[in-house]
Design a protein around this nucleic acid. Structure first.
Length: 136
DNA sequence: GCCAACGTTGGC
DNA sequence: GCCAACGTTGGC
């Protein structure tokens, strides 16, 4: 079991919209590092859903329901998608500010590589974020 | 709206 | 293969 975090701008694709769809294809990734992370996802891996720009907080938990395959929105064979489904909205969203001030999360990719849109989360970071979200 | 970080492109 | 120019992301 691996853990991940994906970013989305709530003005473009919010958590609530994702929930209303029930399950969706995660497309549009055009960055090699993010693409490699998509390829490394396995079914049932858990994925934090982060709102960038507006909100700037982790709002929900999703899971991988289908592993990576060719991105149907492009002919370019370099790009892939996965399919995700919502698991639950976090009891308490975990803000970027809170993550920044938590010494247990000082090494998280969200802070280290601020522009990456799909990133791995370590098990201990996953547990810590769930704790901060009142999900323990 | 600004700017830092960083990825991509293209000239040499 | 280097690097300047440029575009994009995302926090502030």
């Amino acid at each position: 079991m691996n853990y991940w975090l994906v970013k989305s701008e709530p003005d473009t694709y919010s958590w609530d919209f994702f929930v209303s769809k029930g399950r969706d294809i995660w497309d549009g990734v055009r960055n090699y590092q993010a693409r490699n992370n998509l390829k490394a996802m396995s079914e049932n891996d858990l994925v934090f859903f982060y709102h960038s720009n507006k909100g700037m907080e982790i709002v929900g938990l999703a899971k991988v329901v289908k592993e990576s395959y060719q991105d149907p929105t492009t002919e370019d064979p370099r790009w892939v998608v996965v399919e995700l489904a919502p698991v639950k909205k976090l009891a308490e969203p975990v803000s970027l500010t809170k993550i920044k001030t938590d010494p247990n999360l000082s090494d998280i990719s969200l802070l280290k590589q601020s522009r990456l849109s799909v990133m791995p989360i370590k098990p201990e970071e996953f547990d810590r974020i769930m704790y901060l979200a009142n999900e323990v």
